[in-house]
Amino acid sequence: MRKSAAILLLVLVLYWFTLSGYFDHTVLFVTGGLSVLAVVGLAARMNILDDETTPYFRFKSIGYFVWLFKEIVKANMAVVKAVLSPDMEISPSMFKVKMDHGTDLGRTTFANSITLTPGTISVEMEDGEILVHALLEEMTDLEGFKEMGVRSGKAVADPMNYVPKLAAKPKATKKRKGS
């Protein structure tokens, strides 16, 4: 708790100077210091001082974000192509991806990465299972999820043991608009 308080303090000081941009103004300097201390105190009162609050500054995670951004661009292209083509052939499906990151932070990173990649949304998360809604057939590929899970686990330094599993096969209810 003391360690994360220190990290939070550092992050908030950097945040303050990023926002403020005044380095030589005495009043702003003093009030800035007091406000940072007040916010850390508030966070302590709220009981939110732990590793989940301050996951910033992990150099491993920078590489992950670069990789994730590449994935997002790729997925965006696929979705744009599907949406803008006159036929608009899509095959929405829902399935469960089972994975077990050790911590809530790892689970959140993984689920948010899924949502960030267009074409897949994490609809529900229960313990180790994420219910995913996918727009296109090529996005149900479990290998992709596995890679994302492993990488996101590494990015936030989780003890992780990943078991990809298609828990429920998507039901095909043939429905067509206009018919």
Binding site: Y15, V36, V39, A43, M46, T53
Partner: peptide, 8 residues
């Protein structure tokens, strides 16, 4: 993550 940033 957001609460301290919003407060500051």
């Amino acid at each position: 993550m957001l609460i301290p940033l919003i407060a500051l």
